[in-house]
Each structure stands twice: as C-alpha cells, then as structure tokens.
Computed example of a mutant assay.
Amino acid sequence: MNRLTTSQVIRLSKATLMLFISLFGLLMLHNHFTDYSTNYEYIAHILSMDTTNDQHKYRHRAITSTILHHRIYWLIITLEVVYTLCCLLGTYYLYKNINSNREQFHEAKKPALIGLLIALFLYYVGFQVIGAEWFNMDESKTWNYQDRSRYIIDFIFPLLIYIAMKIER
C-alpha cells in the first residue's frame, strides 16, 4: 500500500478545497440563471435603498433605475462566471500537477489565486464595502446580504492564504 506523505496530503487538500469553492461558484451561477428574478430582486432593493432606515437622509446614494439594476446584476453574474472559471481551471491545474515538482505545483496555483481574488473582490468590496457601507444594506431587515457574504468571505480569504502558501514539497 502506498502511504501518503504530509506534502501529498497538503497538495491534495489544496486541490480539493479549490474544488469546493468551484462547486460553490457553479451552484451560485445555476441559481442566478434558473432563478434570475429572486436574486435580481435582492440587488434591486439593495441599490434602491427602499428598505433601509433614514431613506431620505441617504436618498442621493440610491440607484432607482431598473436598467442599472439589471446591468449591475449582470456585472455581478459576470464576475461570478469569471471567478468560477478561474477556480475550475485552478482546480484542474492543481490536480494535474499534484505529483509534479514543487515549482510546477506552485505555478499551477495562478488561476486559482486569480479566481479567489475576484471572488474576494465581489463578496468583500461589492457586498461588504459598497453594499453595506454605501447602500446601507445592513440596515434592511428583509434585503440584507451582509451575513451571507461574510460567511463566503470567511471561507475564501483563509483559502486564498492557504493556496498561496508554499508549504508543500
């Protein structure tokens, strides 16, 4: 029986965790394309700021154009497509290079790292910074994506660090 070394387990764990985030991206995309209206409604309410406290005080920040709502939602979907494709490609390269030398395995991480950075941009900058701080999404009782995006960030950020680390041999 062939015994796995710690280095092999680390490589396998990196590839497998990338598979997990890729699956998440695929499921998110499936959800957006099969239930466009529900997810669009979230974005429209967040951008319109119609369910936040002090609506009149921050009304100048609101985006009420349905055309812009759809375009911003499609921007979000596009970013999700790009990060998911990068993560899938990164997963493939990591599995493909799982028995390669240290440098080849490390170089195989590039698409995965790019995908994770795009995902971090979307969920942290897009939802936590812009959604919560500019559009006051966190003040809405009904249309609030802040906790959900925080859970996603809590997985992506440590994963980004773990994938980037050169600890495997």
Score class of each variant (00 low, 15 high):
N97Q: 09
I118K: 02
L88V: 02
T34P: 06
L27C: 07
M28E: 06
R59H: 10
K96Y: 08
L160T: 10
A62T: 12
Q146E: 12
Y58M: 07
W74Q: 09
H30R: 15
L27M: 11
M1S: 15
M28L: 12
H56M: 12
H56F: 11
S48H: 06
S48Q: 08
R61G: 00
W134K: 15
Y93A: 04
S100W: 05
D35L: 11
L117Y: 06
E107I: 07
A108L: 03
S37K: 10
Y95D: 13
E41P: 05
L88Y: 03
F127W: 01
H30E: 11
Q128E: 11
D147P: 07
T91V: 07
Y124V: 15
S7I: 08
P111V: 02
E103L: 09
L85W: 03
I130L: 13
T52V: 15
N53G: 13
M28S: 12
E168S: 12
L47V: 12
F127Q: 04
R102I: 00
K166H: 13
L79S: 12
T38Y: 11
I114G: 03
A15E: 00
E139M: 11
A44Y: 03
I161K: 10
T84N: 09
S140P: 00
K109F: 03
N31F: 03
F127I: 10
R150I: 13
T78M: 06
Y123T: 14
A112Q: 04
L120V: 12
S149H: 08
I77A: 13
L117P: 00
E103W: 05
H30D: 13
I161D: 09
G115Y: 01
H32E: 14
G90N: 06
V125L: 12
T16C: 09
T16R: 05
L75G: 15
H70I: 11
D147I: 14
F155T: 14
V81W: 02
I77P: 01
V82M: 15
M165A: 13
I152L: 08
S140F: 03
E103D: 12
T66V: 11
F121G: 04
T78Q: 08
L26N: 08
Y123W: 14
Y151H: 04
Q146I: 05
N101W: 04
I21A: 04
S65T: 03
L160D: 11
N136T: 04
F33H: 05
I156C: 00
E107M: 07
K141T: 07
N2F: 11
F157H: 10
A164P: 01
